[in-house]
Amino acid sequence: KNAAKIVNEALNQGITLFVSDNKLKYKTNRDSIPSELLEEWKQHKQELIDFLTQLES
């Protein structure tokens, strides 16, 4: 999976991924984040940080 797909899947579940101080963060109104999503974010962390940083610049 690529970073764009992961970010879109998160958005579809009401979760916004973003970068703050070079760290991957998220915002959501959900009570909890599915563990498989958290695991996927960890596996692709640097790719996600790079992707989101490019989007914001």
Rank of each mutant, 00 (worst) to 15 (best):
I49D: 00
I49Q: 03
F51C: 02
S35W: 10
E9M: 07
V19E: 02
K5W: 12
Q46K: 09
S57A: 14
W41T: 02
E9T: 07
E9N: 08
T16D: 05
Q43K: 13
L48C: 00
L55Q: 13
D50P: 03
D21Q: 07
K42G: 09
E56F: 07
Y26L: 04
V19C: 05
F51V: 02
E40S: 08
K25V: 10
D50I: 10
Q13T: 04
L48F: 01
L37G: 01
T16N: 07
Q46H: 07
R30E: 05
W41H: 02
S20K: 12
Y26E: 01
L37N: 03
Q54N: 11
Q46V: 08
E47C: 07
N22G: 15
L37D: 02
I6F: 03
Q43I: 12
Q54M: 13
L38V: 07
N2I: 15
A3W: 05
N2M: 11
D50F: 10
N8V: 11
Q46L: 08
Q46E: 11
S20D: 15
K27C: 15
Y26G: 02
L24F: 03
I6A: 02
A4Y: 08
L37T: 05
W41M: 08
K45S: 14
S20E: 15
L11M: 10
L17N: 01
K5C: 13
S35K: 13
A10Q: 01
A10W: 02
L55D: 08
F51Y: 15
I15D: 01
E9F: 06
S32P: 11
R30K: 10
L24T: 01
K25Q: 14
L24S: 00
N22A: 08
V7E: 01
Q13N: 09
I6E: 00
I15K: 01
K23N: 11
Q13M: 15
S57L: 13
L38R: 06
F18R: 03
K25Y: 15
E40Q: 11
G14C: 07
D50A: 12
G14V: 01
T16M: 11
F18I: 07
I6N: 01
N12G: 11
T53K: 12
L48H: 00
A4C: 13
E47K: 05
L55T: 10
K45A: 15
F51K: 01
L37R: 03
L38E: 07
Q46G: 06
T53I: 12
G14K: 04
D31F: 06
E9L: 05
I49P: 00
I15E: 01
W41F: 09
S20Y: 12
L24N: 00
Q43D: 08
A10T: 03
N22L: 06
S32G: 07
I49N: 01
